[in-house]
Amino acid sequence: MDHETCVEIESDADMVAARAAGRALAERLGFSRTDGTLIATAISEVARNILVHAGCGEILLHDVHERDRHGIVVVARDCGPGIQSVELALQDGWGSSGGLGLGLPGARRLMDEFTIESVPGDGTTVTMKKWRARDPLERLRREREQREQVWA
């Protein structure tokens, strides 16, 4: 993990900042412009969820690296009332605050991994990941470096 950003979410202007931070990190990690927009859109939805259901919270962004892929991790945390039924919250059309209930299901479709942990009375944490395949040349170079280290 080389990059870590935290954006406090207290007003709707902070949502714009969180989207920009997500897009900037995605670009630094080599994601395409389209992936950057998918990530920013998903961040927008989870940030709004924080504002509407909890009033305030934070969005943490960081990178993750595996042998064949790079990833961006978005963690949206709040200390609100929690979600009664996570399963229901992920169904299209469900929503308790006058929204159309499209936010979380939509964000899930935009990302590769999506999990919600919620304890009634003790807040909600949404964790989302998006991956991109590691460039083959990038991987070969890294493998060679590792071999050289073993021989040295």
Partner: peptide, 10 residues
């Protein structure tokens, strides 16, 4: 516009 999410679309 940087994103059009569910809120902006509505």
């Amino acid at each position: 516009l940087d994103v059009i999410d569910s809120f902006a679309a509505r």
